[in-house]
Amino acid sequence: MSERSIELTVNGRSYSGTADVRTTLADFLRHGLGLTGTHLGCEHGVCGACTILVDGVSARSCLMLAVQAEGSDVRTIEGLAEPNGDLHPLQTAFRDNHGLQCGFCTPGILMTLMELLDEQPDPTEADVRDAISGNICRCTGYQSIVAAAMQAAAELRKGRRA
């Protein structure tokens, strides 16, 4: 298979390396860069576990090739916490509300909600349900995830006002 060199930024750090042209972005992040926080639940674009932000927009990293991310700014679950290690308010809210059980779907749901809260700082519960309707969770029944998103939204709004 032919390899190409790629350069991209992941969670604020620049990486350069080579990837087989057919390597998915998910596999490149997980096995090429060792960022195994992004998970694969279906590899056919339905479950949303692999969702990351590419240039600020949510993307299914199982459906993207690594080479398509050339020059992009990628954000994954590993990049959510503050540099000092404090959890992001969204992560804290998930912990407070039991928004995760096995945690396998969680990376994709967190990244999906990051995008929502960025675009829509004051969502309704229905907005949240809509936003995560492309993410499958087998464990939680989603209610705790919705509660977590609402808490995080309120917390982030407070932060913006301050």
């Binding site: 997980r30 960022l35 195994t36 926080g37 992004t38 998970h39 694969l40 994954t76 679950i77 590993e78 959510l80 916490a81 959890l87 992560q91 998930f94 912990r95 995760l100 945690g103 396998f104 969680t106 990376p107 967190l110």
Partner: peptide, 15 residues
């Protein structure tokens, strides 16, 4: 269990 999972530091078999 949560902090590791929320930071993307879980250790599933493929990790």
């Amino acid at each position: 269990e949560d902090p590791a999972l929320l930071r993307g530091n879980g250790r599933f078999v493929d990790d």
